[in-house]
Design a binder for these strands. Structure first.
Length: 496
RNA sequence: AGAUCUGUAGCUCAAUCGGUAGAGCAGCGGACUCUUAAUCCGUUGGUUGGGGGUUCGAGUCCCCCCAGGUCUACCA
């Protein structure tokens, strides 16, 4: 139905107009509030009725009216503020017949009111505010969803998150937890002397990851810019600058598909630690995740989608080659032979593009056949050099880099490595990427000359890591879709 | 991008084989001074996502389009 002709909205408009004519502004400035609903419950919820009656103070709360039980000369209201719910008792006796009548005629579920009065206990023993004063704080023009089933429609929940938040307390909890996780991360890194920084979101060169970027344009400079796909190259410039320990919590933008695991803009924690190695990052990652789980749950295990996830340390560590050997019938020796790997891929229906190296084939097999089986936290390390253009080679085996990814519940949660500090090696890797790009690899890196210049000044031995916050929040809030942990997930345009 | 499912009143859902579009809640009118989805009586509300087709007749069958969910692909 056309929203402009909806009779429920029309009725509320008429009520607002009637209020104006009575001298009541339906959209006033605020009145002072003394307590939240939770404060009152904490202070007086357990007290006996007699004790409550002795309290001479008046209290003022404000919130949305979400429920109403009308008994003629007395009305019970469910008032919700950010902390929870309190019952308000409105009676003709206390507020006077005129106010009482006005409320009955003009108030709707969804309106926001402030109430002041003394506390009381009802016959059922529930702490309630017996209002002797009420002030409309906002006239709501739209009816809320039904009180029992609430708002279920997933599309409406995402498009109108405000309504989702009004109706579904579980959703509020998820976003409170998300906020708490990010707060704890800041505590964790601050305690370890990491400096929080903000680096550009608009990059002249989209670097630091392999992904297709969003392109935008700066009019005055008349230049195309890319929304960042990763902050990595800027954060490492800061390590060159001597900051030594930095972290950033911010959005990355990747012009890729949307799924339960992917949103075009997503939040990444990246941190860089000079004079540390990726082995130390594994330790730090375990510490961080355990700190989060312990802070949230008071223990290290939790259930995700009916599966028990256990953060108890130490976490499993597997070289990628060993992981592939463990989860397939290939041997570590087979992994060096392109022909064997190609045959294996063909047998398992894995699509091969071009003439990949054994390393690339191993990664393909890993991603297709192994990843999803890594349920408990597992570090996979020693990635092939050719898929890791910014990572330092392993000293014993230059074919692999000192890099790991963390998998939990079959999902990549973190990616980390010893940073490549050798500017000539880095230049060579960029050149290889540029050639891959010319050969049609849309996601290959571009050549970043200033980054090479920075490396030429000297990057101390550094390890760096990125942690996908949305996915970690999914795990820790038992959310099945990334859209459930992003307040306003990306949607197509709504039909008018 | 492909496969598949879904879209009916403000919300949550019905509607048998293709045969008069219905309920609960909300709303509106009324009763009620202790309820917790209050209760009771009465009652309004529909271009069935949009467009086209088949048919005597379409919410239902067919085609196109729009939006969403899930899986796959890309990716973190």
């Amino acid at each position: 139905m056309n929203e402009d002709t909806n009779r429920l909205i029309e009725l509320r408009r008429e009520k607002a107009q009637a209020l104006r004519e009575q001298g009541v502004n339906p959209f006033p400035t605020t009145v002072s509030v003394t307590h939240t609903t939770q404060q009152l419950l904490d202070l007086y919820g357990e007290k006996e009725a007699e004790a409550i009656e002795q309290i001479p103070d008046r209290f003022a709360i404000a919130g949305r009216v979400k429920g109403q039980r009308d008994f003629g000369n007395v009305i019970f209201l469910d008032i919700y503020d950010r902390t929870g719910r309190l019952q308000v008792l409105l009676s003709k006796k206390l507020i006077g017949p005129e106010n009482f009548q006005t409320f009955k005629k003009m108030a709707d579920i969804g309106d926001i009111y402030a109430f002041a009065g003394k506390l009381m206990k009802t016959r059922t023993g529930e702490l309630s505010l017996a209002a002797d004063e009420l002030t409309l704080q906002c006239k709501s023009m739209r009816p809320l969803p039904e009180k029992f089933h609430g708002l279920v429609d997933v599309e409406t929940r995402y498009r109108q998150r405000y309504l989702d938040l009004i109706m579904n307390p579980d959703v509020v909890d998820v976003f409170r937890t998300r906020s708490e996780i990010i707060r704890l991360m800041r505590v964790f890194f601050s305690e370890r002397d990491f400096l929080e920084v903000e680096t550009p979101m608009m990059h002249p060169i989209a670097g630091g990851a392999t992904a297709r970027p969003f392109v935008t344009h700066h009019n005055t400079l008349d230049m195309d810019l890319f929304l960042r796909i990763a902050p990595e190259l800027y954060l490492k410039r800061l390590i060159v600058g001597g900051l030594e320990r930095v972290f950033e919590v911010n959005r990355n933008f990747r012009n890729e598909g949307i799924s339960t695991q992917h949103n075009p803009e997503f939040t990444m924690l990246e941190f860089y630690w000079a004079y540390a190695t990726y082995e130390q990052l594994m330790e730090l990652t375990e510490e961080l995740c355990c700190f989060l789980a312990h802070s949230l749950f008071g223990k290290l295990s939790f259930v995700y989608q009916e599966r028990e996830i256990d953060f108890a340390r130490p976490w499993k560590r597997l070289r990628m080659a060993d992981a592939v050997a463990e989860y397939t019938d290939l041997s570590v020796e087979d992994l060096k032979d392109a022909a064997t790997l190609k045959a294996f891929c063909k047998k398992h229906g894995l699509e091969i593009v071009g003439e990949p190296t054994p390393g690339k084939l191993m990664v393909l097999i890993f991603e297709e056949l192994v990843e999803s089986k890594l349920i408990q936290p597992t570090f996979i390390y020693h990635f092939p050099t050719e898929v890791s253009p910014l990572a330092r080679r392993n000293d014993e085996n230059p074919e692999v880099v000192d890099r790991f990814e963390l998998y939990i519940n079959g999902n990549e949660i973190a990616n980390a490595f010893n940073e490549l500090a050798d500017p000539d090696d880095q230049r060579g890797r960029f050149v290889a990427q540029v050639e891959a790009k010319k050969a049609g690899d849309e996601e290959a890196h571009e050549y970043d000359a200033d980054y090479i210049r920075a490396l030429e000044y000297g990057l101390p031995p550094t390890a760096g890591e990125g942690i996908g916050i949305d996915r970690l929040v999914m795990l820790l809030t038992n959310s099945a879709s990334i859209r459930d942990v992003i307040l306003f997930p990306q949607m197509r345009k709504e039909q008018s």
